[in-house]
Design a protein around this nucleic acid. Structure first.
Lengths: 197, 197
DNA sequence: TCTGGAAGTTACAGACCGGTAACACCCTAG
DNA sequence: CTAGGGTGTTACCGGTCTGTAACTTCCAGA
């Protein structure tokens, strides 16, 4: 009955959404294509008619995840049109919310941890998507009138990334509890004037 | 001839060291016990005489890694006896060095990304070891006379953790290049007085 | 020299993996 | 009604995985 995936969606979409969910929860190598298709209410042949290989499916899942993240950015803009600083604070709040609601880390970081072959097709995609996300955060910081926009963006990015893996290793009661405090302190400090270093 | 592992070491140690190296490079699920024993110049039966299971081997590898990290801390103390602030700076330098020399992330974080079953025996060990590392960094900050020692320690810890996964996803040219600047700036700021937030 | 334990060897069990072939079905468009 | 594309079903291939059994070899110590 309730698979978590809308039953009337087309097989390809059901497979993509189910795979995304299962990869996220159990890791990429921890999920077989049989398990995905069964959970998606379809079969292996249908999967291979829509995706060249499991690697191809992985890449499409990562793109879909990035696309959803992109939608978040648009939501920030919609909620605070033109106010980049408010959007930056919204980003911090959203990041903190993810830390508390999702015990698993970033899909791309997890995928990079699992897919170790240097020339794995997914690695290229991961790098592209991560770089795009970075540029977006830099643009947000710059738009908010922060002088050392790149440095703040990179610091916030590293803090968030670190908090996600921390949640994955020691849980939500660890260092990640201080994330908002750290991030807001940094933003305030960078707005105030020259940073240290 | 040269296996990277001292040939005259006992089989158990060769297996442990080889497994550590291979898990680190190729991930846990990406390496089979056959490949480990072959690289260690021994065989599967010998592995299973010394380790109950692959999971047991994984746990012993994580403990060994933590033990090596512990030796690093002792080195800081030996090089700067009593001077906790100097040891903290040494920690930053060492962390930066690891970012540049090792493209793979933290073994425990990577293991946590791969071993997703909530009650996997390794998860418990990972949590213990990470908490111990955190306490050590907090003690270092406190010993260095920093007021909000926990907050600084957690911030530095998250930054480093984030930098490691960043190296794994976008490489050494990404946000992690600023790690030393960020860390030193934070230490300076926390030493200066009250932090933001 | 004898002996006992550690280590090596070979073969195998049972399960799972990604991926493919061949064929039956259904539903919609003409 | 019919044709055809998307879908479902079953079976299979070759490979890999963890883990075990049975046996042999080696070597150190008494």
């Amino acid at each position: 009955m309730t698979d978590g995936v809308v039953e009337r969606a087309r097989p390809r979409d059901r497979i993509l959404e189910t795979a995304r969910d299962m990869f996220h929860k159990h890791g990429i190598k921890g999920v077989g294509v049989d398990a995905i298709t069964e959970a998606a209410g379809t079969n292996k042949m249908t999967l291979y008619r829509h995706f060249e290989s499991k690697d191809d499916l992985i890449i499409e899942c990562l793109r879909a995840t990035a696309s959803k993240a992109g939608a978040m950015w648009e939501m920030f803009e919609a909620e605070h049109p033109g106010d980049k600083l408010a959007q930056l604070h919204a980003w911090v709040r959203k990041a903190a919310e993810m830390l508390n609601t999702d015990g698993r880390g970033c899909d791309m970081a997890n995928a990079a941890a699992e897919l170790t072959e240097p020339d794995h097709p997914a690695r290229r995609v991961i790098k592209e998507l991560k770089e795009a996300q970075r540029e977006r955060l830099v643009a947000l910081c710059r738009g908010a009138g922060i002088g050392q926009a790149e440095l703040l963006a990179d610091t916030l990015s590293l803090l968030f990334e670190g908090a996600r893996v921390s949640v994955q290793t020691v849980g939500t009661e660890g260092p990640s509890t201080q994330f908002v405090r750290m991030a807001e302190g940094l933003i305030l400090s960078f707005r105030g004037g020259a940073s240290a270093g």
